[in-house]
Design a protein around this nucleic acid. Structure first.
Lengths: 176, 176
DNA sequence: CCTTTTAGGTTCAGTGAACGAACCCACAGT
DNA sequence: ACTGTGGGTTCGTTCACTGAACCTAAAAGG
């Protein structure tokens, strides 16, 4: 966090976690990565964060081992950011936070998450409501919900209208 | 959040939740409230946050309906802050965040959480490992873990050494 | 060959938030 | 009359976020 005063002396794993993901934009970067966003520019347009902040967050998350920067083409050199095991492990937290936000503020869901295996919805903690098991991130299917109001100017937002699995890379249509 | 740019246009319940609890110190205030802290001064010494920030966060959380300010004595007028239903609903999120922090950074647990009914530990989402059910917050028992290094100068830290249920008010010993 | 576009950044001035210390006030105790 | 305590507010400094501009390397277009 590093704001002169970090969460020193907090004797608590929650505070330790917040040192890594507690800054502004950080959890939204992780969320987008779970949604399948991988490229700098896609994060940029979908989040609307300042470029400098995004660059700082991607670097910090990479340094913390939440994201991994990997070269996907040589010429011109281009990198993408993908979640590590440690990053994937944030899914339950994000899921719980999203459930809380939806239940208490956005009553109509923006996105619906289902267990891809059996098609039923996820419970409060990311578990499948019928199977009862904790669904692995890659088996979560995401589809637009009734409360969603996509931004037609944002190709990432458009791409996320198609039902897809988490982590599956977003497909950007080139139509401006 | 209100830093010129809020998380506008995020079309997402996670972003909505972060507008409420995403600022620095906010989630730690909620954590302390779950641990049984209720008074301004106790939050102050235990968190180590600047007084002005704490006052702002308590006010904001009260306005958002996460905390409730209630008068517990008339003369001199004294108030305490207790979690509402909406605040209690943040427990799964904090629990998941704590589990993540512990698994990836603090390998020895600072605090141990158990289902008070059966005595067994909590899983990744706050569910009881043997009963399998989601444990209600008030039935979670908290005890110090091996990794805990309490601050002897802080009475709240000392009070939390005693095993206790979540939400049960902390008992501050008056010895200096 | 020259120009434009694209991905992925860095730099910089302005502003708003966090920090820490000091101050304030009402009441209680002695 | 003095001191202590709970619960704040004020204020100057520092730091992080913001938005806009700028940079680079390579590819694409003409």
């Amino acid at each position: 966090m590093a704001l002169g005063k970090d969460y020193a002396k907090q004797e608590c794993s929650i505070a330790r976690a917040l040192e890594v993901v507690g800054e502004r934009w950080t959890l939204l970067v992780v969320r987008d990565a779970l949604y399948g966003v991988r490229r700098y520019n896609d994060f940029l347009v979908h989040l609307g964060a300042p470029r400098a902040v995004l660059a700082a967050r991607l670097q910090a998350l990479t340094a913390e081992g939440v994201l991994e920067k990997r070269r996907y083409q040589q010429s011109p050199p281009r990198d993408e950011y993908v979640l590590t095991e440690r990053g994937l492990a944030l899914w339950p937290t994000l899921c719980a936070l999203g459930v809380w936000g939806r239940e208490h503020y956005d009553t109509t869901p923006m996105r619906i998450f289902r267990h891809a295996g059996c098609g039923s919805g996820l419970g409060r903690y990311g578990e499948c409501r019928t199977c009862g098991i904790a669904v692995p991130v890659a088996d979560v299917e995401m589809l637009p919900g009734p409360g969603l109001d996509p931004d037609p100017a944002d190709p990432v937002s458009r791409a996320l209208l198609r039902p897809k699995r988490l982590l599956e890379p977003v497909i950007i249509d080139q139509a401006s």
